[in-house]
Design a binder for these strands. Sequence first.
RNA 1: GUGGGCGUAGCUCAACGGCUAGAGCGUCGGGUUGUGGCCCCGAAGGCUGUGGGUUCGAUUCCCAUCGCUCACCCCA
Length: 416
Amino acid sequence: MSIRAVRGFKDVLPDEIELWHRVESIARSVFKSFALEEMRIPLLEKTEIFTRSIGEFTDIVEKEMYTFTDRSGDSLTLRPEATAGLVRAVSEHKLLARSSILKLFTIGPMFRHERPQKGRLRQFHQINVEVMGTKTPPSDVEVIWMAWEILERLGLRGLSLEINSLGCPACRAIYRNDLKKYLDGIFQDLCRDCQRRSKLNPLRVFDCKNEACRKIMANAPLNREYLCTECVNHLEKVLSFLKTLKIPFVINPYLVRGLDYYVMTTFEMVSSDLGAQSTVAAGGRYDGLLKALGGPDLPGVGMAIGIDRLLLLLEKYKEGPSIDLFIAALGTKAREEVLPWMKHWRRQGLTVQMSYEDRGLKAQMKQAGRAGASYVLILGEEELHKKQVVLRNMINHDQHEITFDDVISAVDSLVG
RNA sequence: GUGGGCGUAGCUCAACGGCUAGAGCGUCGGGUUGUGGCCCCGAAGGCUGUGGGUUCGAUUCCCAUCGCUCACCCCA
């Protein structure tokens, strides 16, 4: 137990890998049906990409980034989220010059230096979606729809969609200002955490667990009262579309995002069986971000699904290997005899396994049974002599002898 | 960064301060010389996380340290 993985970094072991593939392949097929294109971008970016987009005073930038100086003196950071890098790439390659709307996804690891706990790792994995170039309600809806569709196709139940509008930069600013004024007035009565929050991220004061804070906040100005007509209309169209799609939602007026660049529509999908880190998917609109990164002044909306958290919910579906044909060959000669057949079957796409070691037939049968083999091909001295094999069906226990000449086609027709 | 819980076999966990630290599962072998799952028998596998202290004696009590874990903060 001397050398271990770095804290908060996890190995994906063979018995879980099937699940990862399932999540990724369902996501890909959903994205295909929504006409999204995949992009792969670097895990490492210039640090300023993140400080400029996420916000200098967010927790992520202040204390959670894996930042270091490389040999040429540049400050680089392992990406704590995907949107900033994607926007950088889109802007760098002028992808929006060719088509006015871009619909992209990317899948991969993110890094944040936080204290690990259930559902929170230092290297975690996200499925990210970004729709850029439009600010219409249907684009918000499609982003939410995709997340919902993926989770639903994975068979997840008991998830709830919470949605809110943060307002556009204009009405949001007015609201923030009034909220701050209110908070300043009651500053003394807030708990210590909330006093800090009221300075850094005022909206967070709403979800304090402290009873006293809750009481005080009941009279605080509400975000929805400040939304301008445009923002109200936008939100209502989104909600109406969701209703038509029969995607159930709850309006959560206190729903806040951790990143500075979000505006208007914001949402989260949460599960009740995940412990404290209950958000499985989240996203929202980020209209000012492209411009902030030196790109064109175009709107965008996106979301991220936390794969590691998703897997926590799917863990019961873990699977072992299953193989089509196990070859119990006794002796070196027998093992060599079957090689050309194995080559054929493997090229046919069959999963074929042979024991590497000279073990007794009993041990090999046991291994075959454990591995979940459908058929076992037995080739010992006796069979070698008679130029035939025994082919055993492991499920109904039938077995019969087959000559060398017929073995390939016999297996092909049985298993293929 | 702060607080709680836990570190004993590959895994899940037992053992009042006292004999050679045990069990289930898994692995390997045997019962059946060449036929899996069930059953029976056996074997391998441990610096009890590490270092110190108290004690005649520590897996057990105390301190430190490292690790894991849950929670806070914050977030996917």
